[in-house]
């Protein structure tokens, strides 16, 4: 069973931080959509390794961690321009 608490709070916190990601278009380093997808894959793998923290009885990956990275990326896509 997935509990809504960490999902919602993790997403909100991630979203707030994601809205502040504003990459400089004139910078030599480009973080494209592909780099965010790689970060997402790494984060999901990491959440699986962390396990069902902090309740230990729900889904096999940390739901707060996954919702936080989802919030970061969605915040970046919606407001972080």
């Amino acid at each position: 069973m997935v509990y809504a608490g960490p999902l919602i709070l993790g997403f909100v916190m991630g979203f707030i931080l994601g809205t502040r990601i504003k990459t400089d278009p004139e910078s030599k380093l480009k973080f494209t959509l592909g780099s965010y997808i790689v970060v997402l894959i790494v984060a999901v793998a990491m959440a699986y390794i962390i396990g069902p923290f902090p309740f230990y009885t729900d889904v096999p990956l940390a739901p707060g961690f996954v919702s936080a990275i989802a919030g970061l990326i969605i915040g970046k896509i919606t407001f972080g321009r």
Partner: peptide
């Protein structure tokens, strides 16, 4: 190249620490 993706992951760990603060 390393710092920004690593910062995203560290931020997620920080959020997870906040979320588990009442029992861990």
């Amino acid at each position: 190249i390393f710092a920004f993706p690593a910062a995203l992951i560290i931020m997620c760990v920080g959020i997870l620490t906040i979320l588990g603060g009442h029992i861990t």
